[in-house]
């Protein structure tokens, strides 16, 4: 299959960022391994897939402007932009998920420290091979969702007017950092239903112990992604060059 220039352009615009990201990850892990061998005690790693999720969210935020402008300058359609975003986010997520899975497998030989994703995927099967494949696909979905969410937020910013942008940039962080804990402490806990423990409970409930649970999880993730992509499409459709 011939990869369209738009997809190539998307990927090449963040190629360097991905390389730098992995250099940092590998360097950190290398230092960690070195330290475990040199000093007594255990060095724990943070979760690689979790770092990737955050990294892709940030990349998603930065992924719109340059390709949008270049595609508009090169007489490409907005539909082409949307399609090539999905394809390139799929390629990048699959690539990173593959690397992260391999790194997780390799590092599990050195230090046993399961990531959140592999803990969820491992809950369903004891077969190591299946578990790895499962990890790969779960990561892939999570990465793509994170990627598309960053992109979605950037698009909302791009399409919204100044007032709207100020509201989002002030209220969203304020709500998450101050509003939620305040609500938790003064509203939910007095009502005897802690918000955080409810979320915790839900996550555990989703964590699949059987094939149906797993299927449900994938359907849930897929519909999330589909919904985000639909929103992105609608936002791109009437985006004007500025």
């Amino acid at each position: 299959m011939k990869i369209s220039p738009s997809v190539k352009f998307h990927i090449s615009s963040i190629k360097n960022a991905i390389v730098v990201f992995y250099i940092v990850i590998v360097a950190t892990m290398g230092t960690g391994v070195y330290l475990t061998q040199r000093i007594q005690g255990v060095v724990k790693f943070g979760d690689i897939s979790f770092s990737s999720i955050i990294f892709l969210f940030v990349i998603g935020i930065m992924f719109f402007r340059t390709p949008f402008n270049m595609l508009m300058q090169s007489s490409m359609t907005r539909k082409e932009l949307w399609k090539s975003f999905i394809i390139s986010s799929l390629i990048i997520s699959a690539f990173m998920s593959a690397i992260d899975t391999i790194m997780a497998v390799v590092s599990s030989f050195i230090i046993s420290d399961a990531s959140i994703v592999s803990a969820i995927s491992g809950a369903y099967t004891n077969n190591a091979g299946l578990s790895i494949i499962n990890t790969f696909f779960l990561q892939l979905f999570l990465y793509m969702i994170s990627f598309s969410s960053g992109y979605f937020i950037r698009l909302i910013y791009y399409r919204g007017n100044n007032l709207f942008r100020v509201i989002i940039s002030v209220f969203v962080p304020t709500f998450l950092l101050i509003g939620l804990p305040v609500l938790e402490t003064y509203v939910f806990i007095p009502m005897n239903c802690s918000l955080f423990s409810t979320v915790d409970f839900l996550v555990r409930a989703i964590s699949p112990a059987n094939i149906l649970g797993l299927l449900f999880l994938y359907v849930f993730l897929f519909s999330n992604l589909a919904l985000l992509s639909l929103f992105n499409k609608l936002l791109i459709k009437r985006a004007e060059v500025r």
Binding site: S13, N69, M70, Q73, S75, T77, R78, V241, R242
Partner: peptide, 18 residues
């Protein structure tokens, strides 16, 4: 007919090149 866009090239006022 968005494909027709590819028959039009604009060297615009603002710079859209990376």
């Amino acid at each position: 007919i968005p494909k027709q866009i590819s028959n039009i090239y604009l060297s615009g006022e603002s710079n859209l090149l990376p």
